[in-house]
Design a protein around this nucleic acid. Structure first.
Length: 858
RNA sequence: GCCGAUGUGGCGAAAUGGCAGACGCAACGGACUUAAAAUCCGUUGGGCUUUAAACGGCCCGUGCCGGUUCGAGUCCGGCCAUCGGCACCA
C-alpha cells in the first residue's frame, strides 16, 4: 500500500460530482427582470466579493475567506426565497501582467487569460455558487468600452456648486469649460518612479517608495489627467452616515478626506498694495491672528518670485532647488529638522497693521489650503519649532484654562493680547474675529480638505486607453460610437524612460487623423473596479453600461435590513465583503464615480455599497504574515486535496470571527474534517466489502423530545448566527448537534434532512450527496430554510443558580412557571442555604427569573 | 504624535451585566485491534484541601490599577502591550 491515507468519507468523488451538476443545471444563475421565468415577487439580495487580480501565483487561503462567507450568505438567502445576485469577475489590468510581458515578450492578454483560467478552476473547486454567466473581465473590450464611456461622462461634466451635483458641461456658462470639467489636464508635481518608468498616485507611494516593487519615487512636474474628486469631498463625508459600514472604516475615510473648518485671511505684502500682492492663508484658528509673528509660503508658491528682495534671491533660489530635488522619502526623513529661508519681504497683519516677515519653508505644502500660512509660534508646535530655530518672536494670545504653560498650547482657552476678542473663549473668539474680517473684506469663513484630486493617468501599456484626441494642443473627447478604444499591439512594452507612455511607440495608432493624435496615457487599475458591481447587474448589455431595469432591481431597495433603521437605504449592494486594504482607495473612488453617474441620472441610488464587512487577514501557522520568503503560505489546492472543499470552507469559517486576524492551523482543518466525517457516518455505514450503505439506525421515526430540542435549538442558533455573520459559532452548534446524535440508536430521517439543509450553505457537497442518499425530494439547494418551533425549546423545569454575596453556592431545579415569590421561598427553605446564611442578616434577595437567586447577607 | 482595533487555558476561540472557558485543536487515559491507524468513551485553567480511593469542599483566575453594581470578561475612568491607519494638512 502507498502512504495514501484512506479518506474518512469519499469527498474526492462527491465534490467533483456536485460541481459538475451545478454547472450543467446552471443552478445558481440569477435571472434579470424581464427574462423568462423571472419571479418578481421575490425580494432581491446582492452579495458581492471584492473581485481579485488574477495573479500568476494563484489563490491563497486569504482569498476564499471572504468568498466563503459571501457564499454561505448567498446560498442561505436563496433558501430564504431571495433572488440572489452573487457574481465573480477579474480585475485584470495592472502592472504584474505588464512586467511579465516586458520580461518574456508574451502579450499581457495571454498571461491574463491563463491566470484567469487557473483562478476560476480554483474557485470552482471550492464549490462557490457564483453565477458564472455573469463573469466579467476588466480587460475585455466589451467591458472597458463602458469604462471609457463613463470616463467620457466624467469628462463632459462639471460640478455645479449651486446644485451641489455634477451636471453636463453644456449647463456651464462660464468662459472656459475646460477649467471646470470633472476630468481635466494639469501640470502637477507628480510621484515619478524612474524604475517603473511611470507616475504613481499618492496612495501607491509608501514611505517614499513605490508600493509595487519598493523603488524610489521623486517629485516631478508632468502633464496629467486629474479627476475632480475634491468637488465631492463634502458629500463623500456626509453620505457615509447612512451606510452600514464598520465605524473604523468610515473614520478612515473621514480622516482621509480630512475636513477642517476655519477661515481664509488676506495679508497684504508691505510696500505694494496691489491686489496681486495679497497672501491668502487658511487657518483653523483665526482667533490666534494677533499671535502671527511671521508668515510662511510654500517654496513653490507663485507669489515668491514677485516678492523676494534682491539680496535674498540667491538664498531663496538655492533653497527652492534643494527642496525640488528632494524625494518624498527625503522630505519625510528630514522632517525632524525645520528648514526655511527669509524672502526679504514683509506682510501686514490685517488685525493690528503690524509688519511681519515672510519666509519660505517646505513644512508648508503647496497642495493644502492656499499654500501659505500665518505662523503663530505660541500656539502651533511646528511654528514654534521653526521660530525657535530662526529666532523669530513668540507672542501668547491664548490663555490655557488649566493654567498650563501658554507657550506651545494648542487647545482652546481664552483670548488675550487680542484687542478685538480679548476675554472670549476660543470658539466664540473664532466666530467674532471671522465676522470682523468678513465685514472688512479681509477674510472669510472657509472649509478645507486634505483630499486631493485624483491623479488618473499612468504611463503604462496594460490599461484602458483614454477616449481622447489632441489637436493644436487641445484635448477633445472621441465620440461614443468610437468606443472601445483598443490599445495597439506592441512588440516592446518597456517604459520609454522619458515619461512618455509606451503607447507612443505605436506610431500608426497614435495618429488619429491628419491633424489629431491620440492620448497616450492609460487609466489606473482603479478605473475598472470603480463600477464593476454595476456591470454585474447586466454584464452582456451591448447598448448600455447597465440596463435601466436591471440596475433598478439589483441596485435598488431591498427589504430593510436589520442594520438600518431607514425605510430606504442609500446603497445598492446589500453586502460587500473584502479586505481593509481597500478602505480608502477603491471604496472612495467607487463612491465618487457612483455619485457622478447618479447625479447625471444613470443610477437609482447615491451610494454603491450599503453594507460593508472586512474580513481579517489569515496568518501562517507561525502566526506571521504569509509570505513567500517565510515559506508559510498555505495553498487551498493542497488543503482540498487532503481534506476536501467542504472541510476547507468550514475550517475557514470555524477559525474565528470573520473580521478578526487569525492564524491558520492544519490541525484545525483536521478537526473540522472529522466533524464532516461524523455527519457522513450519521447517515452512512461501511459494510464488510468497504461499500458505503445507508445506516441501519436511520428510521422514519418521530424525533424524541430531547432530539427535537437540540434540532430546534440548532435551527435557531444557525439561523441567527448566519444573519450576524457569526459562522464560527454556527458551526459549533452543528457540532453539538452531531455529537448528540452520534451513537443514537434511532436516527430520525426527518431530523437529518432538516440538519442537512442547515449544513448546506457551509458544506454544500456533502449535504447535497447525503440529501440524495436519503432519497429526499428534489435538490437540496431548492429547499426552503427551516424554521424552529419555540415549543420544543422550553423546558418544564430550569436550574436556578443560588448565590450568596455573588458567589455560586448551590443550584436547584424549579418549575418554569414558578413566581419570584415561590422561588424565594424555595431557596430560603433549602437546608443547605439555611446553613450558609446561618447567623447572618439577609439584606437583600435578588431574583433573576429562570436563572438565578442572589442572597445578600451581612 | 494623532486616530482606530485587539488583549480570556498549552493553542483557535465562546459567553442579552447573572454558573468564565461552549465548540474545536493539542495532550493524557481507556475501549476496539495480534499491532497500528481510524473510530468510540473519558480527563484536561491554576492552587489548596478532605479521602484508603472516589464523590466532594475551599480559594484564585478574562493585560494592569481603580470605580459603578446584589453581581463585571462584559459598563465607566486611568494606564500598559500588540497590531493597523494617518502623519509637517496650518
Amino acid at each position: 500500500m502507498t502512504s495514501e491515507r484512506r479518506k474518512p468519507y469519499p469527498f474526492d468523488q462527491i465534490e467533483p460530482k456536485w460541481q459538475k451538476i451545478w454547472d450543467e443545471r446552471q443552478s445558481f444563475h440569477a435571472l434579470n427582470p424581464g427574462e423568462k421565468n423571472f419571479d418578481s415577487k421575490k425580494p432581491k439580495f446582492y452579495v458581492l466579493d471584492m473581485f481579485p487580480y488574477p495573479s500568476g501565483a494563484g489563490l491563497h487561503v486569504g482569498h476564499p475567506e471572504g468568498y466563503t462567507a459571501t457564499d454561505i450568505i448567498a446560498r442561505y438567502k436563496r433558501m430564504r426565497g431571495f433572488n440572489v445576485l452573487h457574481p465573480m469577475g477579474w480585475d485584470a489590468f495592472g502592472l504584474p501582467a505588464e512586467q511579465y510581458a516586458i520580461k518574456t515578450g508574451q502579450h499581457p492578454a495571454i498571461t491574463t487569460r491563463e491566470n484567469v483560467a487557473s483562478f476560476k478552476a480554483q474557485l470552482k473547486r471550492i464549490g462557490f455558487s457564483y453565477d458564472w454567466q455573469r463573469e466579467i473581465n476588466t480587460t475585455d473590450p466589451g467591458y472597458y468600452k463602458w469604462t471609457q464611456w463613463i470616463f467620457l461622462k466624467i469628462y463632459n461634466s462639471w460640478f455645479n456648486p449651486k446644485t451641489n451635483k455634477a451636471e453636463p458641461i453644456s449647463t456651464f456658462h462660464g468662459e472656459d469649460p475646460d477649467s471646470v470639467r470633472l476630468a481635466y489636464v494639469a501640470d502637477v508635481a507628480v510621484n515619478w518612479c524612474p524604475e517603473l518608468g511611470t507616475v504613481l498616485a499618492n496612495e501607491e507611494v509608501v514611505d517614499g517608495k513605490s508600493e509595487v516593487g519598493g523603488f524610489p519615487v521623486v517629485r516631478r512636474p508632468m502633464r496629467q489627467w486629474m479627476l475632480r474628486i475634491t468637488a465631492y469631498a463634502e458629500r463623500l463625508i456626509n453620505e457615509l452616515d447612512e451606510l452600514d459600514w464598520p465605524e473604523g472604516i468610515k473614520l478612515l475615510q473621514q480622516n482621509w478626506i480630512g475636513r477642517s473648518e476655519g477661515a481664509e485671511i488676506n495679508f497684504v505684502v508691505a510696500g505694494t498694495g496691489g491686489p496681486g500682492y495679497r497672501i491668502h492663508v487658511f487657518t483653523t484658528r483665526p482667533d490666534t491672528l494677533y499671535g502671527a509673528t511671521y508668515m510662511v509660503l510654500a517654496p513653490e508658491h507663485s507669489l515668491v518670485d514677485r516678492i523676494v528682495t534682491e539680496e535674498q534671491w540667491p538664498a531663496v533660489r538655492e533653497y527652492r532647488e534643494r527642496t525640488a530635488r528632494k524625494s518624498d522619502l527625503e522630505r519625510s526623513e528630514l522632517s525632524k529638522e525645520k528648514t526655511g529661508v527669509f524672502t526679504g519681504a514683509f506682510a501686514i497683519n490685517p488685525a493690528n497693521e503690524e509688519t511681519i516677515p515672510i519666509w519660505i519653508a517646505d513644512y508648508v505644502l503647496l497642495g493644502y489650503g492656499t499654500g501659505a500660512i500665518q505662523a503663530v509660534p505660541a500656539h502651533d508646535e511646528r511654528d514654534l519649532e521653526f521660530a525657535r530655530k530662526f529666532d523669530l518672536p513668540i507672542r501668547e494670545v491664548v490663555k490655557p484654562p488649566g493654567g498650563e504653560d501658554p507657550i506651545g498650547f494648542v487647545g482652546d482657552g481664552v483670548a488675550i493680547n487680542s484687542p478685538i476678542i480679548d476675554g472670549l473663549q476660543s470658539r466664540e473668539a473664532i466666530r467674532k474675529i471671522t465676522s470682523w474680517l468678513e465685514e472688512r473684506g479681509l477674510g472669510k469663513r472657509a472649509i478645507n480638505y486634505k483630499l486631493r484630486d485624483w491623479l488618473f493617468s499612468r504611463q503604462r501599456y496594460w490599461g484602458e486607453p483614454f477616449p481622447i484626441a489632441w489637436e493644436n494642443g487641445k484635448h477633445r473627447s472621441l465620440g461614443e460610437n468610437e468606443l472601445p478604444v483598443v490599445p495597439p499591439p506592441l512588440e516592446d512594452y518597456k517604459p520609454t524612460g522619458t515619461g512618455e507612455p509606451p503607447l507612443a511607440k505605436a506610431k500608426d495608432w497614435v495618429r488619429y487623423s491628419d491633424k489629431a493624435t491620440r492620448e497616450l496615457n492609460v487609466m489606473p487599475q482603479w478605473a475598472g473596479s470603480c463600477w464593476y458591481y454595476l456591470r454585474f447587474c447586466d454584464p452582456q448589455n451591448k447598448e448600455r453600461f447597465v440596463g435601466e431595469e436591471a440596475e433598478r432591481y439589483w441596485m435598488g431597495s431591498s427589504p430593510v435590513t436589520r442594520h438600518s433603521s431607514l425605510e430606504s437605504t442609500p446603497g445598492g449592494v446589500d453586502l460587500y465583503v473584502g479586505g481593509t486594504e481597500h478602505a480608502v482607495l477603491h471604496l472612495l473612488y467607487a463612491r465618487f464615480w457612483h455619485k457622478v453617474l447618479f447625479d447625471l441620472g444613470y443610477l437609482s441610488k447615491p451610494e454603491p455599497f450599503q453594507r460593508l464587512v472586512n474580513q481579517g487577514i489569515i496568518l501562517g501557522e507561525d502566526s506571521q504574515k504569509m509570505s513567500k520568503s517565510r515559506g508559510n503560505i498555505v495553498n487551498p489546492d493542497d488543503v482540498i486535496g487532503q481534506y476536501g472543499a467542504d472541510a476547507f470552507r468550514c475550517y475557514e469559517m470555524f477559525m474565528g470571527p470573520l473580521e478578526q486576524m487569525k492564524p491558520w492551523s492544519m490541525h484545525g482543518v483536521e478537526g473540522v474534517a472529522r466533524f464532516l466525517a461524523r455527519v457522513w457516518r450519521l447517515i452512512m455505514t461501511e459494510d464488510q466489502a468497504g461499500q458505503w450503505q445507508l445506516s441501519a439506525a436511520l428510521k422514519d421515526a418521530e424525533p424524541t423530545k430531547a432530539q427535537n430540542k437540540i434540532l430546534h435549538a440548532t435551527i435557531k442558533k444557525v439561523t441567527e448566527d448566519i444573519e450576524s455573520l457569526s459562522f464560527n459559532t454556527a458551526i459549533s452548534q452543528m457540532m453539538i448537534f452531531v455529537n448528540a446524535f452520534t451513537n443514537a440508536e434511532t436516527i430520525p430521517v426527518s431530523a437529518m434532512r432538516t440538519f442537512l439543509v442547515l449544513l448546506n450553505p457551509f458544506a454544500p457537497h456533502i449535504s447535497s450527496e447525503l440529501w440524495e442518499k436519503l432519497k429526499s425530494p428534489g435538490d437540496i439547494t431548492g429547499q426552503a430554510w427551516p424554521s424552529y418551533d419555540q415549543k420544543f425549546l422550553v423546558e418544564d423545569e430550569v436550574e436556578i443558580v443560588i448565590q450568596v454575596n455573588g458567589k455560586v453556592r448551590d443550584r436547584m431545579m424549579m418549575s418554569i412557571s414558578a413566581s419570584d415569590e415561590e422561588v424565594k421561598a424555595a431557596v430560603l427553605a433549602n437546608p443547605k442555604n439555611a446553613e450558609l446564611i446561618a447567623g447572618k442578616t439577609i439584606r437583600k434577595l435578588v431574583v433573576v427569573p429562570k436563572k438565578l437567586v442572589n442572597i445578600v447577607v451581612a
